[in-house]
Design a protein around this nucleic acid. Structure first.
Lengths: 208, 208
DNA sequence: GTCTATATCATGATAGAC
DNA sequence: GTCTATCATGATATAGAC
């Protein structure tokens, strides 16, 4: 997934694994089936951990709505667990999962919704309870933005990285990144509702 | 860019363009040079429009800091302009630009920083003035999150799309999406600073 | 089950007639 | 400049020996 699905050849995979070229086709049938199993093996435990985390929070809350930060942390914390796997597997797994939705390969588009289905449903329920005044459509969009930010951050790609003015200090520490990410997302989810009619040029200066 | 760089063959391109297979190599030299010119032709005007928009806002503000929403709109509004180009060019151009950073092709990694350099510098200056109490590192990360959300949203990919519970109404209207996106990002940028030490389980319930 | 060898095909690039 | 024809390469997949 450093190279993307199409650019990654079975020759490269089998060579790095130290096995024969024909092994993939014997054990998995075809290249698609291999990548599908990789995704299931990585995404399955991750999303299961997210749901387990949420279960625990909800059991402890005894019927009260959860806090936004708690809910976001249930999504994010399992990612940190993955990132701590020994190098380079941790980093690459994050790339894999983050890029999954941007990956143009058709076959991924089929398995991802199934993998994420339960997670999305459960977290939408939790967020609906935490934000009772939020219209349904608005919440769905904000969840969309949230997943987008998370995916993009997980890829490790970075529009800003190569700009000289912006040399960051804690580039590799996933925990530090997520510690910054959670307040950002929480504030976004809690943002005041947009006016139904927004004029083309905004008044602004609200932060001055 | 519906298929990604590697999966798009010169045969496919020339066939759709109604020209000869050899035309690309004659006029551009190689496939890489072609995609590079495509990006420059799309990204150049977009980023130029962003800077022009910012210039206009700053001229009107006469030295006062801009509002966060204004700054974000200067980034987002030019995207809307692209999205309004006749179908399917508008939609596909957005995919192209949104996926650019996730695209694994090595050649893109070289030209994108150059294309975005000025934009990042200018907007960082503007945001620094609008958020004077924000530490530099924190601001850079929040800009990173912001670009990530925007890129992901532009791709049109969607983790939530295929989940039955989440059927959205205004799927295709880019203006409506951006109208929702701006308050989300503005709130994220303005979020309270994270505590230096966050305990593993948060107190939560702040939103109840 | 694992290997070698190979079939089949698509790709990017180029040579050379026009 | 534009076309046809072709090259060299590397891809997935499979047949068949061991």
């Amino acid at each position: 997934m450093q190279q993307g699905y199409v650019a990654t050849s079975l020759r490269g995979i089998t060579a790095k694994a130290g096995v024969n070229l024909a092994a993939v086709n014997y054990h998995f049938g075809c290249k698609e089936a291999l990548i599908r199993e990789v995704f299931e093996r990585r995404l399955g435990p991750l999303n299961a951990a997210r749901i387990a985390h949420l279960d625990k929070l909800e059991a402890a809350a005894r019927g009260r709505p959860l806090g936004i930060e708690q809910i976001i942390e249930a999504i994010v914390a399992p990612v940190l667990h993955v990132s701590k796997e020994p190098r380079p597997r941790g980093t690459i797994s994050l790339q894999l999962l983050g890029r999954a939705f941007s990956e143009p390969a058709e076959t991924l588009r089929e398995i991802l919704p199934a993998q994420y289905r339960e997670v999305v449903i459960r977290f939408k329920q939790a967020l609906t309870r935490a934000l009772p005044d939020m219209p349904d459509q608005e919440l769905i969009w904000r969840m969309h933005f949230m997943f987008g930010t998370l995916s993009y951050t997980m890829t490790g790609n970075d529009a800003l990285k190569l700009i000289a003015t912006c040399n960051r200090e804690d580039g590799d520490d996933a925990v530090a990144i997520m510690r910054r990410l959670i307040p950002f997302l929480a504030a976004g989810l809690r943002a005041p509702l947009p006016a139904l009619q927004i004029k083309r040029s905004l008044p602004g200066r609200r932060a001055a």
